[in-house]
Nucleic acid binder design. Structure first.
Lengths: 142, 142
DNA sequence: GTCTGACTTGAAGCGCGGTTCAAGTCAAGG
DNA sequence: CCTTGACTTGAACCGCGCTTCAAGTCAGAC
């Protein structure tokens, strides 16, 4: 059973994350190691599932602190569950924004208007009222 | 016609952005003012459309530099147009990630598994291979 | 004419999410 | 036993996207 354990280099390679990021996540309480081999961390393979979740959540714009809170969730924490449902709803808005951006880019990449940014067919995707609604949101590295 | 011009405070209020952000965007070349009334910037109302686009793009994870490049686009810049089309494709992946996160959160907010994070129905949304594919992406403020 | 407060500037600072560095430890292979 | 190189630590640093600050200007209302 102990032969199933992975060292940080293996986890880094399999997850695609840097070892420094794994140590950082451990310090922030997002993952934990199964123990040590000497000084070295040993990880259970299940940490890879956990990391997949973390990568997805980070990619969806969640902060480390938010992810930590969600990971600690128990069925009894009604307030946290409510916040999760709320986050899901906000993700709908984020998705809508990404779809508008995608459509705008597709248009722009095939449009002959000069300059592109003034094309009405392009601008149609970005109405000012939608921007106002979006002001507290945002995704990240694209 | 000159009565149509807005000062920075009005633009801030109407766009939902801070005046400091507007000055920052101007310095980065994302927007420009129509001139000055004394020392004070005057903006054309059209800047609000431009800002809507910027807010959307920022929310979709684009950096200031990327947005500046796209805003300078002309139909003749084939390489930039190719990059736009490429970005649109990547947005599809981002959208898929947000959808998985949304579904996972919806499940979690109604799930009785203890701890929630170990629920198979929840984890199903976050397969390790999807995380690997996502490694260079990410949205932002959620 | 004078007051007020929204504007101006450049530079410094902040929060986030890590990365990098220097110095040291130690498991495993030969 | 000795070497190697992947690991360990805490602290310093980085890039991004602004925000804040100090010091000053000045348009518009009174």
């Amino acid at each position: 059973m102990s032969e199933e354990l992975l060292d940080i280099g293996e986890v880094a390679e399999r997850s695609g994350l840097a070892a420094s990021a794994l140590r950082f996540y451990e310090k922030q309480g997002l993952i934990d190691s199964a123990g040590r081999n000497g000084l070295r961390r040993s990880y259970r393979p299940g940490v890879l599932d956990r990391l997949a979740l973390i990568v997805c959540a980070r990619g969806a714009g969640f902060t480390i602190a938010e992810i930590a809170a969600f990971l600690r969730a128990t069925p009894g924490d009604l307030e946290l569950r409510a916040r999760m449902a709320d986050k899901a709803t906000r993700l709908e808005e984020d998705i809508a924004r990404l779809e508008r951006m995608r459509d705008g880019l597709r248009h722009a990449s095939a449009c002959t208007h000069e300059p592109l940014v003034e094309c009405p067919g392009f601008k149609r995707h970005f109405p000012p009222d939608a921007a106002l609604a979006a002001r507290r949101a945002g995704v990240g590295r694209g």
